[in-house]
Amino acid sequence: MIPLSWYLILAAALFSVGLFGVLARKNAIAILLGVELMLNAVNINLVAFWRYGSLASIAGQVFAIIVFAVAAAEVAVGLGLVISVYRRRNTVVADELDLMKW
């Protein structure tokens, strides 16, 4: 069986890629994609910990399902806000949304 640490390293790598995307990309859609990667890293962690921990407790699985549901809600609202910004400003690039500063 593949050791647990492999899954954790995969999750950590995925999380880092996502975090880099969020911090480095300028496009709002790309930022939301980065957040999704981070949430998927969390899910890998949760399910791996559950599989290698006590199988009797389903907390890990339940947690992962709830993360799916909440992530979907968050992205729905996120895309809605992106669309409303795009309609007003004709851009979804975070750098160009600088009406308010300091």
């Binding site: 975090l19 969020v22 981070m38 806000l81 910004v85």
Partner: peptide, 27 residues
């Protein structure tokens, strides 16, 4: 609209980081 947009981007990112902490805590 810009305010909601900025709030969402920050909120989504920070809550994902916190959640990663939760998953480690669970593990």
């Amino acid at each position: 609209t810009e305010s909601g947009f900025k709030y969402l981007l920050f909120g989504a990112m920070t809550s994902a980081v916190m959640l990663y902490g939760f998953s480690l805590l669970f593990g």
